[in-house]
Simulated scan of single mutants.
Amino acid sequence: MFMSEPFVLFSSSHLLALLLLVITSLLLYAFKGFLQHNPRGKSIVRYALAGLLAGSEAILDIWNISKGACSPRYTLPLELCSLTLLLSIAMLLTKSRLLYGILFFAGIGGALQALITPNLAYAFPHIRFYQFFAAHILIILASLYMTWIENYRPTWKSIGLTMIFLNIAALLVGIADYELGANYMFLMHKPSTASILDFLGPYPVYLLAEEGIALFIFTIMYLLFFVLPGKRSNAGKTRGHSAI
């Protein structure tokens, strides 16, 4: 019987998966001008992303069922990335600005952290390896699509809403963890695999540290994506007018 090798952090397959994120993001950005002026193309990409997200979740469910691994303690969609995946589908289908404001930060931030330090037991070429990286890359691409193609923009208020969303989600998931004896969102203890939580102290200190880190990362994301580019653009326009 074939046994999958365990996942190795920053192995060649892991680094190639991260490279795939970079390539697909760059391609989306490179074609933004074409898609912005092509309504049919925009719809195709938007619905394709939604369909691929749904497909990745369906593949996970089918795999769990086929292995007899379905359990309320382990396979409910209560991880942060599972929640943002489902909400990303809703955002793409409804073009909700409220969901976008939350998912730009929670979706990209959470999925990126998961991609860098995956809580994954299976290495390439196991189907769970493909499913894991595809799902998390697609979560990021969904919000980048809404940013670059649909020209959506979060605000400072979006960061506050995202923090509220995360805390409400943590409260509800924490109740489920307690009732089920589960550990969704790692609210009861750290994951068994290496992660950023290893540097944030013991339970429950790391939960409080996550709050500050999330707020810091969201602020940096907003500055890098929107504030600084806006200032550079305004500075360029000012220099242009001065030269006339």
Rank of each mutant, 00 (worst) to 15 (best):
Pro118Gly: 04
Gly101Asn: 06
Leu60Trp: 13
Pro77His: 14
Tyr184Val: 01
Ile196Trp: 02
Arg46Trp: 08
Pro229Asp: 14
Leu120Trp: 03
Ser13Pro: 02
Ala182Glu: 09
Pro191Val: 15
Val45Arg: 11
Gly212Phe: 07
Pro39Thr: 03
Asp177Trp: 01
Ala243Pro: 01
Ser143Met: 04
Leu18Lys: 00
Gly240His: 00
Gly55Tyr: 02
Ile108Val: 03
Asn183Met: 12
Ala90Ser: 13
Ser158Ile: 01
Ile139Glu: 02
Ser43Leu: 15
Asn234Ser: 12
Ile59Gln: 10
Leu15Cys: 03
Leu99Met: 10
Ala134Leu: 11
Ala30Asn: 11
Met91His: 01
Lys32Leu: 15
Pro77Ser: 14
Leu26Lys: 08
His37Lys: 08
Leu80Tyr: 03
Leu98Trp: 04
Leu26Ala: 05
Met1Glu: 12
Pro6Gln: 05
Ile140Lys: 10
Pro229Phe: 14
Tyr206Leu: 13
Ser66Trp: 09
Thr238Glu: 08
Tyr152Cys: 10
Ile140Leu: 09
Ala58Val: 12
Ser233Gln: 15
Met221Pro: 04
Ile62Tyr: 08
Phe218Tyr: 10
Met91Trp: 07
Phe7Lys: 07
Tyr184Gly: 00
Leu53Glu: 01
Phe218Thr: 06
Ala54His: 04
His189Leu: 06
Leu115Asp: 00
Tyr152Met: 10
Lys32Ile: 04
Ile164Asp: 14
Met188Arg: 12
Tyr222Trp: 15
Met221Ser: 11
Thr84Asn: 08
Asn151Met: 08
Pro72Trp: 15
Ile164Trp: 04
Thr162Val: 08
Leu187Asn: 14
Leu86His: 05
Gly55Lys: 05
Ile140Glu: 02
Leu76Gln: 15
Ile23Trp: 11
Pro202Asp: 10
Pro6Tyr: 11
Ile116Ser: 06
Glu57His: 05
